[in-house]
């Protein structure tokens, strides 16, 4: 079987798997962003309880493996009466894990905004919330975009683990084809190529574009 024939037979399955991977990535990314902003801001709080809660969350999710978290959420949570569908458990685990890493980026980004900006906003009698939303966060956002590009690629790669709880993503499809054909190089090789294209031809250019748009908006381009 030539590679072209292989693609003719198995291409559609691989594409279907890719679509699932895409969905998992989008949902996990949305969750990660929400968690990152929330936990990142909480880490800047002066309230010890708020700060502590975020710290515990971040340390737990950054201190253990994504795979362990995924298995825990999928196999152990049901014992606590919380049974999740495998698709949901998948993006939940990935999003919660990468959200913990993102929180530190958010915190760092906000701290990177010069003190003068805070003081100027305060001098203009802005409320803390206004100051954050209107003045600080937009500048912090631009500063943290480059590391977020890397984080989103990590997130995309992380979704491959959901195959291990049988979510039919790209990785899962590749394993299935490998199991039935033993054409390992073709099956896993194709999947690797598709992941590469998603990273380098979708995620990276999108982030570059976003950086450009934001920089222009803030008058820095």
């Amino acid at each position: 079987m030539t590679y072209v024939e292989f693609l003719k037979v198995y291409g559609p399955q691989l594409l279907e798997g890719s679509a699932t991977t895409g969905m998992q990535t989008l949902l996990a990314a949305a969750l990660a962003i929400i968690i990152a902003v929330t936990a990142g801001l909480m880490r800047l709080s002066k309230n010890r309880f708020v700060y502590g809660a975020a710290t515990v969350y971040i340390e737990i999710f950054r201190g253990t493996s994504l795979l362990v978290q995924l298995y825990w959420i999928f196999f152990v949570l049901p014992l606590f009466g919380l049974t999740l569908e495998k698709f949901t458990a998948g993006y939940l685990a990935v999003g919660m894990n990468l959200g913990a890493y993102g929180a530190e980026l958010v915190r760092g980004g906000i701290l990177s905004v010069p003190k003068g900006q805070w003081e100027a906003a305060t001098a203009l009698s802005m409320s803390p919330a206004k100051r954050m939303v209107r003045i600080i966060f937009p500048q912090a956002f631009l500063n943290m975009l480059p590391p977020w590009g890397n984080l989103l690629i990590e997130l995309l790669k992380g979704t491959a683990l959901v195959a291990l709880i049988s979510v039919a993503d790209l990785m899962f499809v590749a394993r299935k084809i490998n199991g039935s054909t033993y054409m390992s190089a073709q099956a896993f090789g194709s999947a690797l190529l598709i992941y590469y294209v998603m990273s380098r031809a979708v995620v990276t250019p999108f982030m570059r574009w976003l950086e450009l748009v934001m920089a222009r908006k803030l008058g820095r381009a």
Binding site: I153, S184, A185, F188, G189, Y195
Partner: peptide, 23 residues
Amino acid sequence: VEFIRSTPLVLQIFFVFYVGPQF
């Protein structure tokens, strides 16, 4: 380096483990 960095480790583990025997 870019290729290895932007694809999942778990898939690379499968790849290395299964592609050897094929050849």
